[in-house]
Design a protein around this nucleic acid. Sequence first.
DNA 1: TTTGTTGCAAAACGTTTGCAGCCTC
DNA 2: GAGGCTGCAAACGTTTTGCAACAAA
Lengths: 155, 155
Amino acid sequence: MKEEPVQPSPIELFTEYLIRHKHRKTPERFAILEKIYGIDGHFNAEELYEQMQHEYRVSLATVYNTLDLLHDAALIVKHQFDGQPAQYEKALGSSMHNHSVCTVCGRIKEFTDKKILMAIKAKEFANFESTHYSLYIYGVCKKCQKKKKQIKKSI
Amino acid sequence: MKEEPVQPSPIELFTEYLIRHKHRKTPERFAILEKIYGIDGHFNAEELYEQMQHEYRVSLATVYNTLDLLHDAALIVKHQFDGQPAQYEKALGSSMHNHSVCTVCGRIKEFTDKKILMAIKAKEFANFESTHYSLYIYGVCKKCQKKKKQIKKSI
DNA sequence: TTTGTTGCAAAACGTTTGCAGCCTC
DNA sequence: GAGGCTGCAAACGTTTTGCAACAAA
């Protein structure tokens, strides 16, 4: 996992990707990319689709199609949290972060940790070239710890 | 994340869990638990259901229900790999391991790394009590690297 | 006896697909 | 002009749910 120096813009990268893969540069695809890069944090396909309706109208099928392309182009990161639909977030511009997930209420928080990052980056595989990673630490958040104690008392 | 000394058996733990949560100790639940602890590696609900048919017959709905309970009881780990149905594996008896995922063919391999493990275990949160974690390192496996090169050449 | 659990089938959900028309290239 | 892409709706596969019968407590 190597660090890239000063990246070109997502639009440039997506354009390059589309040309390289002989895909067409449609207005829908760029409208979706721009929308995504205006969103901070997680979103799912449905949410993105709904937010798109106000500006450049696209079908849900095209949203899914484009999310696939962007994922393949490494311009977005995809998460599959337990029951929920797939969550996405932009891959550029936000620092590589990890997620803590509360197993009771499902709340997801981001955090960074230098030691963890370095340990993972240092990992080398014999038959595998790594590009990125996802780390989820599961546990119970403060709120749910309190709730649990209250339940215990009431029994 | 603390290390537990000598654990009681999965059956004992599940029994405890069921009593603690006022759930019934049905034969189906224990049959499923036993089946799971006889499986090495990953499996999904459908596969488990099919394997059950030979011995103790249970419905798919009960399989899902019991998987939920076992997950909640921390006796199994749940993974949500991209397109695939949810994958499970027993949580006890197998060392805590990480997964490398090929983004081209989807092949998943397990690996362990002491430095990564220690870095993650050392992490402390202010408002969150961690119990376990999942680390997925994404990249391209040797086979798919070769395929990619062949495609490049042919263009 | 009470009520949680089961099996079954139907429904729900997110996602994918087939197709006719459109618009990049 | 050719063929990839779009929107739409229908289909898909996994998971959940409603309900009547059953069985653990």
